[in-house]
Design a protein around this nucleic acid. Structure first.
Ligand SMILES: [Mn+2]
Ligand SMILES: [Mn+2]
Ligand SMILES: [Mn+2]
Ligand SMILES: [Mn+2]
Lengths: 228, 228
DNA sequence: TAAGTAATTTAGATAAATCTAAAAATATTT
DNA sequence: AAATATTTTTAGATTTATCTAAATTACTTA
């Protein structure tokens, strides 16, 4: 007998775990590891094991000792709802309250837990049903659906490749501030001018400007939609 | 040695207690009683005693066993900050997201705990520095200052008295919906036509329309600014 | 003023979320 | 395949916020 999801309520802590497990699932392997979750949430593996047990009981994850966790269909719904709220609030903060894109993640981490489906829908409407947040991350719709065209990390591209900078896959304000300083913005066209084998650093020309040098630590987080 | 307030952080539960104690202080007697707090917060007196102890240690209330609590200057600051956020968010929900005034209190109860002073200031600016929330409650400024002209409950007025309906001193959606149904809105002029001694019910003419009957349970929550 | 009643506090539990230290299981490396 | 290292789980505590039941204090009233 599956539990009724409709009025299932999750604590902030539970929501954060569910979201993190969802993200780690997306980003790769089956069987998300206890340590990976602990790292992400800045908690200890022992705490993660406890919480995973609880989430498994609530059937938002599948879990077998020592085998890692996998998000369930129910869990995916919960995660996408939280992610939807996070990204909508980020849009609100940037578009309406004039925050810079490096200032919004922390605040959205709080706002994503506000419980009111009407609020989420009204906010979405108020913002004009945005498709992406200020960092280019897609915003799931009410049903949890969203589309992402295929992207590659800039670090994976080759010399002479051309593309569109569409997303930053990292929330660190230092990275975002650095991109600001370099005048690199979402939506810019770019071309790979040079790539250093030894350290993976790259020379990139954005919008036909003088090329800039970017280290591998940076380029791995810049997501590019290839063109031609 | 007084504790540094600047980076004092309070839990949601603590903030709710502080806010409630502040409100009860305003609404009357010195020495807010354990039971009054328990009623307001839908908890048990034993829980209140525990929490009061904690708040006394943090010096946001003054407390002596069996003597009730009084909010301290520090506590007042914390309370006013939370109240400011609550009311600003209510304005946002009504003005920007088109909520009705009876739908916003619950959601504001959550939003008032979001921690970000920049957010509060930006929101205030976005809303045009409103002086009152959708129920007519005054919004404290950044320094916690606000002004209320003198008001009386409608129930305290006499036949032939005239005034301006400026505030509803109750969040219950049923009351607010009833006022909607009766087409009674903030800012309306009114005149007391009749007052029944037995039950305190009143006949009131709003904006020179056909008088309406209102029970004491209603009139005690309608705050009036007297004119002439 | 002495009972009786009401309000408040204490004592002892519980649930949630976290931790440290130790044990157990799994993975990796000689 | 052992030995070693890493990961994960268990055991046992801690903190916060809550509760019930019992004890204590204060207030009312006869
Ligand atoms: Mn974010
Ligand atoms: Mn984002
Ligand atoms: Mn309210
Ligand atoms: Mn209000």
């Amino acid at each position: 007998m599956p539990k009724i999801l409709i009025d299932m309520n999750f604590s902030f802590a539970e929501e954060n775990y569910i979201k993190t497990i969802y993200h780690l699932s997306q980003a790769g392997e089956v069987g998300v590891s206890t340590n990976a979750i602990a790292d992400q949430l800045h908690t200890k593996p022992a705490s993660v094991t406890d919480m995973i047990r609880k989430l498994a009981n609530k059937e938002v994850v599948d879990y077998q000792k020592y085998q890692g966790v996998n998000i369930s269909e129910q869990g995916k719904k919960v995660a996408l709802e939280v992610i939807r709220k996070h990204r909508l609030w980020e849009v609100f903060l940037v578009e309406k309250l004039k925050f810079n894109w490096d200032e919004v993640h922390e605040i959205a981490e709080q706002l994503e837990h506000i419980r009111s489906s009407i609020l989420t829908e009204r906010l979405d409407e108020f913002l004009g049903y945005p498709k992406a947040d200020p960092h280019g991350d897609p915003i799931p719709d009410k049903e949890g659906k969203f589309e992402t065209g295929p992207t590659v990390a800039l670090s994976e591209m080759s010399v002479d490749d051309i593309g569109l900078f569409v997303m930053v896959a990292n929330d660190d304000p230092h990275l975002l501030q650095y991109l600001d300083k370099m005048k690199i913005k979402l939506g810019m066209k770019l071309k790979v001018i040079d790539k250093v084998v030894f350290d993976g650093s790259m020379q990139i020309s954005f919008s036909n400007e003088t090329p800039v040098f970017l280290s591998h630590q940076i380029t791995q987080h810049l997501m590019i939609r290839k063109v031609a």
